[in-house]
Design a protein around this nucleic acid. Sequence first.
RNA 1: GCGCCCGUAGCUCAGUGGAUAGAGCGCUGCCCUCCGGAGGCAGAAGUCGCAGGUUCGAAUCCUGCCGGGCGCGCCA
Length: 559
Amino acid sequence: MASLDTPESAAPTPNGPIDPLAELRLALADAATEVRGTPITVELRLDRPKRSEFGDFSSNAPLLLSSGLDEQPRALAERLGAALGRRLGPDLDRYEVAGPGFVNLFLSDRFWRSALSTIATVGGDFGSRVAGAGVERLLVEFVSANPTGPITVAAARHAAYGDSLCRILAFAGHAVEREYYVNDAGGQIRRFGESLAARARGEEPPEDGYHGAYVTALAARIAGAPELGPDELADQGIELMLEAVSATLERFRVHFDRFFSERSLHADGAIERALELLSESDHVYASEGATWLRTGDLGDDKDRVLRRSTGELTYFAADVAYHADKLRRGPDRVIDVLGADHHGYVARMQAAWQALGGAPGGLELLIMQLVNLTEAGRRVAMSKREGEFVTLDELIDDIGVDAARWFLLQRSHDTTLDLDLALAREQTQENPVYYVQYAHARIAAILRRAGEERRTAAASADLAAAGAPLHPSERALVRRLLEFPYEVATSATRRAPHRLTTYALELAQGFSAFYRDCRVVGAKEEGGDEAFRIALSRSVQATLARSLDLLGVEAPEAM
RNA sequence: GCGCCCGUAGCUCAGUGGAUAGAGCGCUGCCCUCCGGAGGCAGAAGUCGCAGGUUCGAAUCCUGCCGGGCGCGCCA
């Protein structure tokens, strides 16, 4: 059963009734306080019942509130329903007490009309939050793929997820900065340079080097490559690779505010400064010729090396310095999106964060699981070393940006994902992304057909005024719209963009049912309310467009 | 061996304490004088991995097993 409660951080804004459902929840809490006689401490929710005979909304509040009281849940439910009825007045048709102690609410047309009126007034901002408690300044790092090769499908999932998450967080009212950490230092860069040097001379790269065909092509683009040394080649190769990566990401509608270079941390002494800082707080010690961070005392399995016995700094040392930099910039929260192969890294990074003086919970490490591409049951292998992989550019060429983003976002980030290329390639009803886009385009066609005059009339009509009785499909569709603010808030707090693919699909289906049952243009002929239906269609269109925008998918006017 | 993630319909997966567990694909059967048929409707299909526990109530929380993926460097 879908829960319609609002997460704590998504309290209704003080500047107006932009969320009718939140108002309903407030009325419920108010009524519960009256019935109980003392302020309530438990979180009360309004659920969406699975069966229509259980009402438009359902609450289990009596079951929760009766604990510790003498009163039976059903008796409490009866009093709660009555108290709620006094608050909602004509917005409530009736309530029923059911099961072990649920109170089921049946709202009136007056409620639905008034709710749509509110949604239509808010327009494209419906579901967004511009103020209120819980707004944070967030620094989100994602992708951060090594600049030694093209963006792969695995990194593409990170890109789609991180970007969509940022869009959602921003829409939910947070201030978001997006950052890409460029691993342009260390052993792999040396191997990259050596591989370029070998290819430039027409030789095979070293055993542990990079063997992809793109390395040869890259070497060919560097002027005078055969005469250059590995370091110089690596420098130029990384520069070219980063340009390509950035272009691919922009093509994928993913934009970063900053590319943060690992090498710059070495160059400007930031790592040394971070080490000094940690030494002052006694988190660092020397042993076996190396310098260690005492992560074992802070939840990690063991201590970790910052400076090798050879004198070289580790990748970890640079990352610690990077996070010291993030911390110094003062965001309320730092979010890193990491690959599944980095989950062993989480404990030491959290330990380092603590050692740096970061607030508990101030660093959030999200682990992305892997992507498998399937094509007619066959799995497409991906290994950057062997050069046998599908790049994001190839994926986009194959199935398009919209399908690629939708399918990569469709599943929870912590589950492995199978992407069926054959299905994603379909431009028919079998493909959910086209289904949703089709619904959007169809509404656009209907509104075009309605014409300027009817649209203007609908825009200026008093939607909340009494009118023709609403069809069940109309009420169901308004209710689906009302869930949008909750879905946005939940997607944000749970870092779960995939919820919006489900929501968009359900909203599109709700519109299809409405379209089947109710004429929009010419509604009067069947006793319907044309202005209401036009406004409803517009609101659905706007909410579909917003949902797709948060996913980074286009909402076409025509297909 | 230890750690993280996962196990829900034939397939891919939603569903982080509520009533008879859902969607998409696939399958079966219907519906185009009707605002976009690139669509819609109906149906078949499930021991929610297994076993205990907590609870008025568990796919959901706890414990133990089983199965799969990924990790466990003075690599990045």
